[in-house]
Amino acid sequence: MKKIVLFIMIVMLMVGCGQQSSDQNAGDGDQQASFPERPLEFVACYGPGGGHDTMLRAMAKIITDEKIIDTTINVVNKPGGSAAVGMGYVNSHAGDGHYLMSTTSSFITTPLSSDLELNYKNFTPIARLGIDPEMVLINSKSEFTSLEDFLKSDKAINVGGTGLGTIEHIVTVMLEKMSGKELNYIPYQGDGEVIAALMGNQIDFTITNPNTAYDYLKSGDFKALAISTEERIDMMPDVPTFKELGYDITVSLFRGVAAPAGISEEEKAYYTEMIKGLVQTEAWKDDYLGKNMIVEGYMDGAEYEEFLNEMNGIYETILRELEIIK
């Protein structure tokens, strides 16, 4: 009998320990009377290590470190379908303000190029945070040293990127049309997989953001051949723009955040304040924008919505021209 009592005590103790730690997590948000009721979930629509993921994790860290809000933030990855998976996931929580999704150009291109019955209008735009350019990246061991070499060679060229109809794909198709060289676009799941493919020489080059490529450029594993900005950027003065090389390609990725549709004004205001607090911090400017070579470009929810309307028009025209949408 004694043993059983002892045993029950051990069990209770163990259960108690477990509860204590989970209580602490849930308890963080108690100061806000109604929202948030539980930890916030930041949803990255691409795999870990990619641009969405890096941005949300940096946001979560800075917001927590600088005590901008005192609720726990969990970053989750819902990769796949050129962000369709993440959009479906967040949309399945329509009306629930505990979800905040990273949005990039795929927020517009994926609905346009697939029959996903969702588009940017099914979400609540919260803010645009910045833009980042597209670059042509090759393995340093590659036999080619310039974009011209590539486009004039007889070799069949395989280009890696994420999903069909993404900005990387649009840049590839534009390059193909302007140069007349056939480029074979291979979709991978997330930026991390593309980087691995380029590392292992599975593909000839990739179109990706400086954000993803930064460390690999620094370590000398990869080389950048062209960038899609109007002018060369300060951090990489040796990389020529597409324009200089004779290809008029100036499309860049935008980065922002959106919440599910149908959230309350209170919830919207909560996020607007949070983001306003975030973009003013030095940590955000240095540790995120600076380190990832992202051009600052804050817009609030209303401005971002207008921007999305405008971009949607531009993208739709390009994608129709490229026959990605018929």
Partner: peptide, 20 residues
């Protein structure tokens, strides 16, 4: 069932939860 990243096409998504 669910979204296919190679084409971005969603299969058999009878409810939005099935996109994943």
């Amino acid at each position: 069932v669910g979204s296919d990243y190679v084409s971005g096409f969603v299969r058999f998504d009878f409810t939005p939860e099935l996109i994943e």
